[in-house]
């Protein structure tokens, strides 16, 4: 007993190596939640002479919520497009589950387990809610041409399972409307939910949300925060681009700040809030008289 206490005292003693540092809990990086999922290393994206992203590095683990913030035009969406395979980084690399994504087709990146939503909701407009979600199961659904033409029992089984799964995801995100409606008939907040359900239906290990809170009212935002946490509990890693600081501060475990394509800070919400460079980027530099 006494030995053990001594032992623990010793370790404690070792941790508090810097007497006087008051923010000890934030200075120690949070222990990783799960396996390393995404690793962005020194990513540069360039359009002609414009450097949209100029050196961005961050890691995401399973079950972790990371936010990427920055003023308008800071390169957040460009970074997302690069991670999901629409742009090729001019320098640096993107590793997902240990594999380099920089030369991979977007559909294969999705199959590896990455999904995203868009800044402006991009659902398939002429399709019903259910069909939108079912499209996301494309790569996992096995039906051959003869089955679909002849409507064999195998076709019916596959379609039924697909429908059930899709309904499951719609329930998960709390969609309360009619799943047979065209998505364009839904209110905006519901469309956002359907888009998240569609992304989840690809069974992602990592979910990228591009401004999921845009255009939502206060209670919808609270529901969104609850949903993001619920998704994290599935073990999915989440990367969030968001302008609403309240939402970001409440939900994120770590925040990466971009300004003019450059990464200017990476830390916990508490650190970010007090980082002079972040404050400067958002509010402008204080004049030194």
């Amino acid at each position: 007993m006494s030995e053990k206490t001594e032992e623990s005292e010793k370790t404690e003693g070792r941790q508090v190596a810097l007497p006087g540092s008051t923010d000890a809990p934030t200075a120690v990086p949070l222990p990783p939640k799960g396996d390393l999922l995404l690793s962005v290393k020194d990513m540069h994206v360039q359009f002609g002479g414009v450097k949209a992203v100029d050196g961005l590095s961050f890691d995401v683990h399973e079950g972790e919520i990371i936010s990427v913030i920055g003023p308008n035009g800071a390169g957040k969406t460009s970074a997302f497009n690069c991670i999901t395979g629409f742009y090729r980084p001019s320098k640096g690399s993107v590793l997902f589950a240990g594999r380099n994504l920089t030369r991979m087709r977007p559909s294969n990146i999705t199959k590896l387990g990455m999904a995203r939503t868009f800044q402006n909701v991009r659902l398939f407009k002429d399709m019903s809610v259910l069909e939108n979600v079912k499209t996301a199961m494309h790569s996992r659904l096995k039906e051959n041409v003869l089955d679909t033409l002849l409507h064999t029992p195998r076709y019916h089984r596959a379609e039924r399972q697909c429908t059930l799964d899709a309904q499951g995801w719609l329930d998960f995100v709390g969609f309360g409307g009619d799943e047979e409606h065209l998505v364009t008939q839904l209110p905006y907040g519901e469309q956002r939910r359907v888009e998240i359900a569609r992304a989840l239906a690809t069974k992602p290990r990592l979910l990228l949300l591009d401004e999921p809170g845009a255009g939502l009212n206060h209670s919808e935002k609270q529901a969104l925060i609850a949903l993001i946490r619920k998704i994290r509990e599935l073990g999915v890693g989440i990367v969030l681009i968001e302008h609403d600081m309240g939402l970001v501060m409440e939900v994120s475990e770590r925040i990466v700040v971009l300004n003019y394509g450059k990464e200017i800070a990476d830390g916990t919400p508490h650190q970010i809030k007090n980082d002079p460079k972040v404050i400067e980027a958002y509010l402008g530099a204080e004049d030194d008289d």
Partner: peptide, 29 residues
């Protein structure tokens, strides 16, 4: 029947509506 009720048909219609988003849903365009 093929276009309206099958996985491949859904993929065709989704590409017609939004090619980029289809790619991200794992559709091999």
């Amino acid at each position: 029947r093929y276009v309206m009720k099958s996985r491949e048909g859904r993929a065709m219609r989704s590409i017609a509506l939004d090619t980029q988003a289809s790619l991200l849903m794992g559709v091999n365009v």
